[in-house]
Write a protein that binds this DNA or RNA. Structure first.
Lengths: 342, 342
DNA sequence: CAAAATACCGAAATCGATTGCGACAAATTT
DNA sequence: AAATTTGTCGCAATCGATTTCGGTATTTTG
C-alpha cells in the first residue's frame, strides 16, 4: 500500500455521480438533503474510508476547535489531575488540546502564549508560573478577544475568568484547626511567589491568628521553595527558634513532608511537639508518618470546570464577562499530623 | 476593536504593491527573493501583525506538524515526566502535541487512536493500557504507514519502534540485590497486566533466583493492582505465609509503599524482618520510612528519546524500521528499605 | 555591442471543504 | 390545467498559502 492517497468529497461525488456540494451537505447531515442520497453518501464515505480534512474545514470556518493549555509543570499530582480533567471534557466536546509547560518560567510562559496564539487556539486555559507578576504577555489574546481562563495560580484581570478555591478561607480553616489543637506558636511556610494564591493563604493564616488573639510574628513566616528541599531548609530555621514553634501550616504538601522528615531526623515528635497542616492532598501525604492533615481540592474538578466554562463560552452559551471568579469546593482532611486531642 | 480581521499575505501584497507569491516567498526566506524586498516584506508583516494561517499551509503541505500522544494516565510521576520530555522536544522542533489518556481502558485507547487519526497527526507516541492485549486498533496507522512509537508499556510489532528499559535485567538486578542482602524467601508483586513490561520483570526475578539456587515458589508471585490498596492487600497475603518471606520485589513503588505501610502497622520491621525493592523511583519512595530501594529511570529521557526518534523519522533523517527497540539506561538506587548489611 | 546567463517577480492552478444563490423537478394549491 | 410552493441539487466563489512556469529586467560573457 504505502501512503495511499486520501479520499476527498470529490472522489465520493464522482463515484455517486453527484456534486461535491451535495456530498458536503450529506456528510454534515444538512436538512436540505434527500434522506436517500444522504444515506448513499454516508455509506460510500464509510466504505471508501473517507475522513474529513480538518484544515480545509478550519480554513473556512476560521475556528480550530483547539484549546491551548499552559501549566507551570506536569509532574505534581495536582496539575496532572487538572490536565486529565481538561482533557476529559475537551475530548467529549470534540476539542483538541495543545499543552505546554512553562517550567515555572515567565519567559517560557510568554513563548508558549505566542506559540499557541500563532496556532490560533480558540481559547486558552492557563496556570501561571511562580515569578509571573503581570499579564502583559497575554495581551495578544486579550486584544483579539480570545477567551482566557486562569486556574489555581491566577492574577486578577478584567478580561478573564479565574477558577480557584477560596484560599484565604482554606488557610483560615487550616490555621484555625491548629489553634483548636492547642498550638499557639504557629509557623507558616509559603512560596517566593507573586501569585495571589500564596498571598491569600498567608492572609488567611494571619486572620485566624488575629481572630483568636494569637500574636502574629513576622519571623514565623518562612519563604521557601515549595518542595522537599525547601521543607528541609525550613526545618533548620524552625529548630533554631526559641521558644520552639508548636505548629506549622505549609502552603504545599511536599514541602511540609520535607520539613517533617528533617524534624523527625532530629527526634522532634509530630504532632506532640509540633503539629503540621499541608495543602493539596498529594498522595505522599498518606505515606508520611504521621499522615499529613491537608486541604483537599480536586484537580479533576478544577480542570473540568475550567474546560467547561471555556467551551460554553466558545459555543456562545455564556459570556466570560458574566463571571469573573469561580470558587470551587475544598475540604480540610484531618489526619494524625495535627491531632493532639483525641 | 473586537474580533479584528486577520492580516493575510494578500493584505501585505496590496500594501507593498507586489504579488502574493512574492510575499509568500519572502516570508519563508526563499532564496530567489531580492534581499531588499524580503526585508520590506518581513517588516510589513511584523508591523501589520501578520500571522501565518496554519490551515492554509497544512492544506497544501498535507502535513500537520502535530504529534499524537496516548498515555494510560497522567497522574503518575513517571508518566507526567515522560509527557514533559515529549513536550520539550516537540516544542523545540515546532511540533504540536495532541494528548489523550486512556484511563487504562483499551476501549478509550481505541477511541483516542481514531480521534488522533482523524486529526491527521503526523505520528503517534503511545504507552498502552493494562488490558490491551493486541494492537489491532492501531491498524489505522499501520495501514497508512504513519509512524507509531510505543514507550514503556509496549507490545511487540513489526511496524513500530519500542522505547523502554531492559526490564528483565533491571528486575534481575533488583532481585539479585535482595539475595545479596541475605534474602532467600523473596515475594514478587506484579500487575494483572498483559504488557511485556511486567512479564519481563517477573522473568528477571525468576532468573535471578535460578542463578543463585534459590527455589522459585509460585505462591510467592502476587498479582495485585499496582497502587497503595493493592500493596495493602498483598501485605495481608504476606502475613499469612509460613515461613514468613524475608524480601519483596515490587514492580511499582506506590504498591511497595502501600505494602510496607500495612506491614509496619503489624510491627513487621523493614528491612530486618523483610527487605523491599520497588520500581520507578517515585518521589514517595523518599518519603516512606525506611526510604525505598528502587529502579530509577528517567521519564524525561524516555519522552525526549521517543519524541526525537519520531521527529527524526518524520524529517526523513531515519527510518523506523531501522531500529526496532531502543533500550534506555536505568539504575538501581539502594536505600534503607533493603540494606541489611552495613 | 550583441548574446547568453542570471536574478527576480507575477499569473494562475492547487489543496479540500463550505455555502449562497439560482435552477429544476415534484408536490401542492387554486 | 395553470400557478405556486416545497424540496433537492449544482455552480461557482471562497478561505489563505504554496508552487510551477514563464516572462522581464539585469548582469555577465564573448
Amino acid at each position: 500500500m504505502g501512503q495511499s492517497k486520501e479520499v476527498t468529497i470529490y472522489d465520493i461525488a464522482r463515484k455517486l455521480n453527484i456534486s461535491a456540494a451535495t456530498v458536503s451537505r450529506g456528510l454534515q447531515m444538512h436538512p436540505c438533503t434527500a434522506k436517500k442520497t444522504m444515506k448513499k453518501i454516508l455509506d460510500a464515505a464509510e466504505e471508501m474510508g473517507y475522513r474529513t480534512n480538518p484544515f480545509a474545514r478550519n480554513l473556512i470556518s476560521r475556528r480550530t476547535k483547539t484549546i491551548g493549555v499552559i501549566v507551570p509543570g506536569l509532574t505534581s499530582h495536582f496539575m496532572s489531575s487538572v490536565v486529565e480533567g481538561i482533557e476529559r471534557v475537551a475530548n467529549k466536546k470534540g476539542y483538541n488540546l495543545l499543552i505546554s509547560h512553562s517550567s515555572e518560567s515567565t519567559a517560557k510562559e510568554a513563548d508558549s502564549v505566542k506559540a499557541l496564539f500563532n496556532n490560533r487556539v480558540d481559547g486558552l486555559l492557563a496556570s501561571l508560573a511562580h515569578d509571573t507578576k503581570d499579564l502583559a504577555h497575554f495581551d495578544l489574546f486579550f486584544k483579539k478577544d480570545i477567551p482566557v481562563i486562569f486556574f489555581d495560580r491566577v492574577l486578577e484581570h478584567e478580561n478573564s475568568t479565574n477558577i480557584l478555591i477560596d484560599n484565604h478561607k482554606a488557610a483560615y480553616m487550616a490555621t484555625n484547626h491548629l489553634i483548636s489543637q492547642g498550638c499557639r506558636r504557629i509557623v507558616h511556610i509559603t512560596a517566593p511567589s507573586l501569585q495571589s494564591v500564596y498571598a491569600d493563604r498567608c492572609s488567611g493564616y494571619k486572620q485566624a491568628l488575629l481572630d483568636h488573639q494569637v500574636k502574629f510574628k513576622k519571623e514565623y513566616v518562612l519563604v521557601e521553595d515549595l518542595n522537599m528541599q525547601g521543607g528541609a531548609h525550613a526545618a533548620e530555621m524552625i529548630l533554631k527558634m526559641r521558644p520552639a514553634p508548636d505548629g506549622v501550616f505549609v502552603a504545599n504538601d511536599l514541602c511540609a513532608i520535607g520539613c517533617m522528615l528533617a524534624l523527625k531526623q532530629k527526634d522532634v515528635k509530630i504532632p506532640q511537639d509540633i503539629a503540621f497542616v499541608g495543602f493539596n492532598n498529594d498522595p505522599a501525604s498518606k505515606v508520611i508518618e504521621p499522615n499529613l492533615t491537608t486541604v483537599d481540592y480536586s484537580g479533576h474538578d478544577v480542570g473540568e470546570t475550567a474546560a467547561r466554562y471555556l467551551i460554553n463560552h466558545l459555543s456562545g452559551l455564556s459570556t466570560i464577562q458574566d463571571t469573573n471568579t469561580v470558587m470551587l469546593r475544598f475540604e480540610l482532611i484531618v489526619r494524625e499530623s495535627s491531632t493532639r486531642h483525641k
